[in-house]
Measured scan of single mutants.
Amino acid sequence: MWEAGIQHIELEKGSKGLGFSILDYQDPIDPASTVIIIRSLVPGGIAEKDGRLLPGDRLMFVNDVNLENSSLEEAVEALKGAPSGTVRIGVAKPLP
């Protein structure tokens, strides 16, 4: 389960991407759907250096692409398709 509020994070995407990987996970509230979760951070990558994204965070959007009900493929496309420079990411943090 995740917090209702969405944290807005801006990262600078370079030639090596944003520095994290994702996975799809069965939604605990709606078993028929999936949620997109941050799986891991690349050591020394943009996301790890920034410090705000953590494994277990739920990915909600990338720039103007809503990922609340997306497939893993759609989420990967949104991340890979984001141009270099500032990328806006929304995440919901896990409940304590």
Rank of each mutant, 00 (worst) to 15 (best):
residue 10 E to Y: 08
residue 4 A to H: 07
residue 35 V to N: 15
residue 27 D to P: 10
residue 79 L to K: 01
residue 29 I to A: 14
residue 38 I to G: 01
residue 27 D to I: 08
residue 76 V to M: 13
residue 13 K to H: 13
residue 94 P to I: 15
residue 80 K to M: 08
residue 78 A to H: 08
residue 3 E to A: 05
residue 68 E to I: 14
residue 40 S to Y: 07
residue 89 I to T: 00
residue 60 M to I: 11
residue 38 I to P: 00
residue 9 I to Y: 11
residue 38 I to C: 06
residue 93 K to W: 02
residue 73 E to M: 10
residue 73 E to H: 13
residue 16 K to Y: 05
residue 5 G to E: 15
residue 58 R to L: 02
residue 92 A to N: 08
residue 41 L to T: 07
residue 86 T to D: 05
residue 82 A to L: 14
residue 28 P to E: 15
residue 54 L to V: 09
residue 68 E to A: 13
residue 96 P to R: 09
residue 40 S to E: 13
residue 29 I to Q: 12
residue 77 E to Q: 12
residue 4 A to F: 13
residue 76 V to H: 13
residue 50 D to I: 03
residue 39 R to H: 14
residue 72 L to H: 09
residue 4 A to D: 15
residue 42 V to W: 10
residue 47 A to I: 02
residue 96 P to Y: 05
residue 45 G to V: 02
residue 90 G to I: 03
residue 17 G to P: 11
residue 73 E to Q: 11
residue 43 P to W: 03
residue 78 A to T: 11
residue 76 V to D: 15
residue 76 V to Q: 15
residue 48 E to F: 05
residue 31 P to W: 05
residue 48 E to A: 06
residue 9 I to N: 01
residue 78 A to D: 02
residue 25 Y to R: 15
residue 70 S to K: 14
residue 18 L to D: 01
residue 36 I to C: 08
residue 16 K to C: 07
residue 30 D to E: 09
residue 59 L to E: 00
residue 24 D to I: 02
residue 68 E to M: 11
residue 79 L to W: 02
residue 69 N to D: 10
residue 87 V to E: 00
residue 44 G to M: 12
residue 67 L to S: 01
residue 26 Q to A: 12
residue 84 S to G: 14
residue 58 R to H: 03
residue 2 W to S: 12
residue 30 D to F: 06
residue 39 R to C: 05
residue 34 T to D: 08
residue 70 S to Y: 13
residue 93 K to R: 09
residue 12 E to D: 09
residue 5 G to T: 11
residue 51 G to A: 12
residue 53 L to R: 01
residue 70 S to P: 04
residue 44 G to V: 01
residue 53 L to S: 02
residue 70 S to I: 07
residue 24 D to V: 03
residue 6 I to M: 09
residue 90 G to W: 01
residue 45 G to W: 01
residue 15 S to Q: 14
residue 13 K to N: 13
residue 42 V to A: 14
residue 80 K to G: 10
residue 10 E to S: 11
residue 48 E to M: 05
residue 81 G to D: 06
residue 47 A to C: 05
residue 6 I to S: 08
residue 9 I to H: 02
residue 87 V to W: 02
residue 92 A to Y: 06
residue 92 A to H: 12
residue 26 Q to K: 12
residue 95 L to D: 08
residue 89 I to F: 15
residue 65 V to P: 00
residue 31 P to C: 07
residue 42 V to N: 11
residue 28 P to W: 05
residue 86 T to G: 14
residue 80 K to D: 10
residue 57 D to G: 06
residue 62 V to K: 01
residue 70 S to E: 09
residue 64 D to H: 13
residue 93 K to T: 04
residue 5 G to L: 07
residue 79 L to V: 10
residue 41 L to K: 02
residue 6 I to Y: 12
residue 82 A to H: 03
residue 13 K to P: 09
residue 69 N to H: 11
residue 64 D to C: 10
residue 79 L to A: 02
residue 37 I to Y: 09
residue 24 D to R: 06
residue 50 D to C: 09
residue 91 V to A: 06
residue 59 L to C: 02
residue 80 K to F: 09
residue 51 G to K: 07
residue 75 A to D: 00
residue 15 S to E: 09
residue 43 P to D: 09
residue 90 G to H: 02
residue 51 G to N: 06
residue 39 R to Q: 13
residue 39 R to F: 03
residue 30 D to G: 14
residue 30 D to Q: 11
residue 45 G to K: 02
residue 55 P to Q: 15
residue 82 A to F: 04
residue 81 G to P: 02
residue 58 R to A: 04
residue 21 S to P: 01
residue 10 E to D: 15
residue 8 H to M: 13
residue 43 P to I: 05
residue 19 G to R: 00
residue 39 R to A: 04
residue 22 I to V: 15
residue 31 P to F: 07
residue 3 E to T: 09
residue 89 I to W: 01
residue 1 M to F: 12
residue 32 A to D: 15
residue 36 I to K: 04
residue 81 G to Y: 11
residue 86 T to F: 11
residue 73 E to G: 05
residue 95 L to S: 13
residue 8 H to T: 12
residue 34 T to K: 14
residue 60 M to V: 10
residue 61 F to G: 09
residue 38 I to A: 03
residue 85 G to F: 02
residue 5 G to K: 05
residue 78 A to G: 04
residue 71 S to Q: 11
residue 3 E to M: 09
residue 45 G to L: 04
residue 21 S to K: 05
residue 25 Y to C: 13
residue 15 S to W: 05
residue 56 G to D: 07
residue 60 M to E: 03
residue 28 P to S: 12
residue 58 R to K: 11
residue 27 D to C: 10
residue 82 A to G: 04
residue 25 Y to D: 15
residue 23 L to C: 15
residue 94 P to N: 15
residue 81 G to E: 14
residue 19 G to W: 00
residue 71 S to T: 12
residue 73 E to K: 10
residue 27 D to W: 04
residue 38 I to Q: 01
residue 11 L to E: 00
residue 30 D to L: 09
residue 70 S to M: 11
residue 58 R to I: 02
residue 65 V to D: 13
residue 25 Y to F: 07
residue 47 A to K: 01
residue 87 V to I: 12
residue 66 N to A: 08
residue 81 G to C: 12
residue 88 R to E: 15
residue 88 R to M: 07
residue 60 M to H: 05
residue 82 A to N: 03
residue 90 G to T: 06
residue 33 S to A: 14
residue 79 L to N: 00
residue 71 S to I: 06
residue 28 P to M: 07
residue 16 K to A: 08
residue 44 G to K: 08
residue 42 V to E: 14
residue 83 P to I: 05
residue 89 I to V: 09
residue 30 D to W: 06
residue 28 P to K: 14
residue 49 K to I: 08
residue 37 I to F: 05
residue 11 L to M: 08
residue 29 I to Y: 11
residue 6 I to H: 06
residue 46 I to N: 15
residue 2 W to N: 15
residue 86 T to L: 07
residue 69 N to A: 13
residue 72 L to D: 02
residue 72 L to P: 07
residue 84 S to P: 12
residue 48 E to K: 07
residue 70 S to F: 13
residue 94 P to S: 11
residue 70 S to R: 12
residue 19 G to D: 05
residue 73 E to L: 09
residue 57 D to T: 10
residue 43 P to E: 14
residue 34 T to M: 09
residue 4 A to G: 05
residue 4 A to V: 13
residue 55 P to C: 13
residue 50 D to Y: 02
residue 7 Q to V: 11
residue 25 Y to M: 14
residue 2 W to M: 14
residue 33 S to P: 14
residue 9 I to S: 02
residue 89 I to E: 01
residue 96 P to K: 11
residue 53 L to C: 06
residue 55 P to S: 15
residue 77 E to L: 10
residue 25 Y to G: 13
residue 51 G to L: 02
residue 20 F to W: 01
residue 1 M to G: 07
residue 59 L to N: 01
residue 56 G to C: 03
residue 8 H to A: 14
residue 55 P to Y: 03
residue 22 I to F: 05
residue 49 K to T: 12
residue 76 V to E: 05
residue 85 G to I: 02
residue 73 E to T: 12
residue 56 G to L: 03
residue 25 Y to P: 08
residue 72 L to W: 04
residue 46 I to L: 09
residue 89 I to P: 00
residue 63 N to V: 01
residue 88 R to K: 14
residue 57 D to W: 04
residue 44 G to F: 06
residue 10 E to K: 11
residue 78 A to C: 09
residue 17 G to Y: 02
residue 54 L to E: 15
residue 66 N to Y: 05
residue 49 K to E: 15
residue 5 G to A: 07
residue 42 V to S: 13
residue 95 L to A: 10
residue 5 G to S: 12
residue 22 I to L: 15
residue 50 D to S: 14
residue 62 V to M: 05
residue 35 V to W: 10
residue 34 T to F: 08
residue 54 L to S: 10
residue 17 G to I: 02
residue 66 N to H: 12
residue 36 I to H: 09
residue 25 Y to N: 15
residue 16 K to I: 06
residue 12 E to Y: 13
residue 8 H to Y: 15
residue 19 G to P: 02
residue 38 I to R: 00
residue 89 I to A: 01
residue 33 S to Q: 12
residue 2 W to Y: 14
residue 23 L to N: 15
residue 14 G to H: 14
residue 65 V to L: 11
residue 84 S to K: 08
residue 49 K to P: 01
residue 58 R to D: 00
residue 14 G to I: 08
residue 10 E to M: 08
residue 75 A to C: 15
residue 20 F to E: 00
residue 67 L to A: 02
residue 26 Q to G: 10
residue 45 G to Q: 04
residue 82 A to M: 12
residue 26 Q to W: 07
residue 63 N to C: 03
residue 79 L to C: 10
residue 72 L to C: 13
residue 66 N to V: 08
residue 18 L to N: 01
residue 46 I to A: 10
residue 53 L to Q: 01
residue 1 M to Y: 12
residue 36 I to W: 02
residue 60 M to Y: 04
residue 88 R to A: 06
residue 55 P to W: 02
residue 60 M to A: 07
residue 54 L to W: 14
residue 80 K to Q: 07
residue 88 R to D: 11
residue 30 D to C: 12
residue 20 F to V: 07
residue 93 K to S: 07
residue 12 E to R: 12
residue 33 S to G: 08
residue 38 I to H: 00
residue 80 K to A: 11
residue 75 A to Y: 01
residue 95 L to Q: 12
residue 69 N to Q: 11
residue 63 N to Y: 00
residue 48 E to Q: 10
residue 20 F to Q: 00
residue 53 L to T: 04
residue 39 R to D: 15
residue 77 E to W: 11
residue 76 V to L: 13
residue 89 I to R: 00
